[in-house]
C-alpha cells in the first residue's frame, strides 16, 4: 500500500501536527514502508480464529460508584497557559 502526499497532509491536519511541505515527500516513503511491513501480517491465514482483544488474561476491572476524586481545581488548572475565574481560558472557539 502506497501513501501519497495528500494523505500525509490530511493525516497531519487531523492530528494537528504541522508538517512543512518539503518534509511531506520524505514521509510518504517512510509511512509506505511502515504500512508494507505491517501488511506482512495478512499473509497469515486467520480464517475461523477469534480476534484477540488483549494479551493479558484478565477482565476489565470495575470500580464502585463512589466519589473519591476531584476538588482539585488548582492542580487541574496548574499547567493551563491561561485561566480565569476557575475556568480554562482559550482562544475563542465559537462556531
Amino acid at each position: 500500500m502506497a501513501v501519497d502526499k495528500d494523505t500525509v497532509a490530511r493525516i497531519a491536519k487531523l492530528a494537528r501536527i504541522r508538517i512543512p511541505e518539503e518534509q511531506q515527500e520524505a514521509l510518504t516513503g517512510e509511512l509506505t514502508e511502515i504500512l508494507n511491513w505491517v501488511e506482512q501480517l495478512s499473509e497469515l491465514d486467520t480464517d475461523g480464529v477469534e480476534p484477540m482483544t488483549s494479551v493479558v488474561a484478565m477482565s476489565l476491572p470495575k470500580r464502585e460508584d463512589a466519589v473519591t476524586d476531584g476538588n482539585c481545581a488548582d492542580k487541574v488548572l496548574k499547567n493551563a497557559p491561561e485561566g480565569a475565574h476557575g475556568f480554562f481560558a482559550v482562544p475563542k472557539v465559537v462556531e
Binding site: 470500580r63 460508584d65 463512589a66 466519589v67 476531584g70 481545581a73 475565574h85 476557575g86 480554562f88
Partner: peptide, 25 residues
Amino acid sequence: IADSKLFSGAATTFGAEPNSQVSLV
C-alpha cells in the same frame, strides 16, 4: 444517574463551581 463519572471518581452534581468536579483522569 450515578454519583461518580464513567471512568473517574469525580462527582457529577449539576451546577458546581467550575472545574471543582474534575479528576486528573
